[in-house]
Amino acid sequence: MKHTIAIIDDHILIAQALRSIISNFAQFEVLYTAENGVDFQQKLTSKPVPDVVLLDITMPIMDGFETAKWLSTTHPNVLIMALSMQDDEQSLIKMIKNGSKGYMLKNAHPLELENALNALVKNGQFFPEWAASKVFTSIREDTIDARSKLNLSDREIEFLTYTVTEMNYKEISEKMFCSPRTIENYRDSLFEKLELKSRVGLAVFALKNGYAK
């Protein structure tokens, strides 16, 4: 039995191209396409809920961030794969925070897309190498008491809460009333304690362990 997919993208040509590409994947079939989150919501009133949603981030009326947040609340079993032209960390972090289980660049090869979808349905998540995918497999799924087991300071924990926001490090330093250099020290200390290498990793850790605001 094939896994079902809905494609949400305001560019009709891209949506149809994706549908055509996925039609050649043995394990998947596209049920329908939608132009934005509102269009998707309307179609769900009469059409089946898909197993996977390929979700464009930048759309009018209701963008990918809003759609992911709504979908993860109303249909938490649906696996969301974000689609983007940008490989920036901020979009990735925000999509993860809003419930996305995967992230894919639109310039990927069809074989990469097929492999990504297979990994998504098999493992429950898929993130590309640039997004520090090792972080997602190395962090334990169960919540841990990081404060006691990893000896995190109050200020390090406060910094963790800001890693899931859209603020850059300079803005975080202003929020925490300290210098950018001090923020770098918190970051580097957490990298060492948590054995991570990127802000994405810190954000995922914060989300999984209850430190996200």
Results as ranks from 00 to 15, higher is better:
154 D>F: 13
171 E>Y: 00
148 S>A: 14
153 S>M: 06
160 L>Y: 11
145 D>E: 14
140 R>V: 04
144 I>S: 06
139 I>A: 06
141 E>N: 15
139 I>G: 07
164 V>P: 02
170 K>T: 11
152 L>C: 08
164 V>N: 11
139 I>W: 14
143 T>L: 10
145 D>P: 02
164 V>E: 13
170 K>N: 13
167 M>G: 00
152 L>E: 05
148 S>G: 00
163 T>N: 08
135 V>K: 01
152 L>Y: 07
143 T>D: 02
172 I>E: 04
172 I>G: 05
162 Y>P: 01
172 I>K: 06
164 V>D: 09
146 A>F: 13
170 K>W: 08
160 L>H: 10
153 S>W: 08
163 T>L: 12
144 I>H: 11
137 T>V: 07
152 L>A: 08
158 E>R: 14
160 L>I: 03
141 E>P: 01
157 I>E: 08
170 K>Q: 13
167 M>S: 09
147 R>A: 14
157 I>G: 02
172 I>V: 12
161 T>D: 01
155 R>D: 10
162 Y>I: 02
135 V>M: 06
165 T>A: 10
158 E>F: 11
150 L>Q: 07
146 A>W: 15
149 K>V: 04
152 L>D: 05
156 E>P: 02
150 L>D: 02
152 L>F: 08
151 N>S: 12
136 F>W: 08
138 S>I: 09
148 S>T: 15
152 L>V: 03
140 R>I: 05
135 V>Y: 09
136 F>P: 03
